Amino acid sequence: MKSFKFYLATIIFSLSFAACAAPPRPPKPPKHPRHGAKPMPPGQAKKIYGTKSAKPFAPGQNK
């Protein structure tokens, strides 16, 4: 009878630790690839949008 109580106590003790396991965390979303990148140069923006002048893409340049 004494060994039965010991085995029962051991099983209950081990199950109590198994129930405390934390679920796995969800994966983090990927970072945005352009985060912290330099802005696009006016000439490159002109080529992408197909305009003849880069003036609208360079607001700091006044002539």
Rank of each mutant, 00 (worst) to 15 (best):
H32A: 14
T10L: 10
G43Y: 12
M40Q: 14
K52Q: 09
G36S: 01
P26A: 06
A58N: 05
M1K: 08
A58P: 02
I48M: 11
A45F: 01
I12V: 10
A21I: 04
R25I: 00
P59W: 07
L15I: 12
P30R: 02
M40L: 15
P29S: 13
I11A: 15
A54W: 04
L8T: 00
A18K: 10
I48H: 09
M1H: 11
G60C: 13
S53H: 02
A22W: 08
T10K: 09
T10M: 07
P24E: 03
P26H: 09
R25P: 02
Q61S: 05
P39K: 03
F13W: 08
K63H: 10
Q61H: 13
A21F: 03
Q61F: 09
L8W: 10
I48A: 15
A22P: 11
C20R: 15
K47Y: 07
H32D: 03
K63L: 12
T51V: 04
K28W: 03
P24C: 03
S16L: 13
G60Y: 14
I11H: 06
I48C: 04
K52T: 12
H35W: 11
Q44I: 11
A18L: 11
P26Q: 08
F13G: 13
A18N: 04
F57Y: 08
P33T: 04
H35I: 08
G36D: 00
K28A: 06
S53Q: 07
L8R: 03
P23R: 10
M40A: 11
S3G: 11
A21E: 02
R25E: 06
Y49K: 11
S3A: 13
F4P: 05
N62T: 11
P24G: 01
R25D: 00
A22H: 04
K47N: 13
K47D: 02
Y7R: 06
T10P: 05
P39Y: 04
R25W: 11
S53E: 05
I12W: 02
P29R: 13
Q61M: 07
R25Y: 07
A9T: 03
F57D: 03
T51G: 08
K63A: 07
Q61A: 06
T10N: 14
M1W: 10
P56F: 02
A22R: 13
P29N: 12
P42D: 12
A58I: 06
P30V: 00
F4Y: 06
P33A: 04
K63Y: 15
F6I: 14
T51W: 05
P56V: 00
P42E: 08
P26I: 10
Q44P: 06
S3F: 14
L15Y: 13
P29W: 09
K52C: 12
M40P: 05
G60N: 14
A18R: 13
Y7P: 00
P59A: 05
Y49C: 09
K52L: 09
I48D: 05
Q44W: 09
S53D: 00
A21W: 01
L15E: 01
A22I: 12
P56I: 01
K5I: 05
L8S: 12
M1P: 12
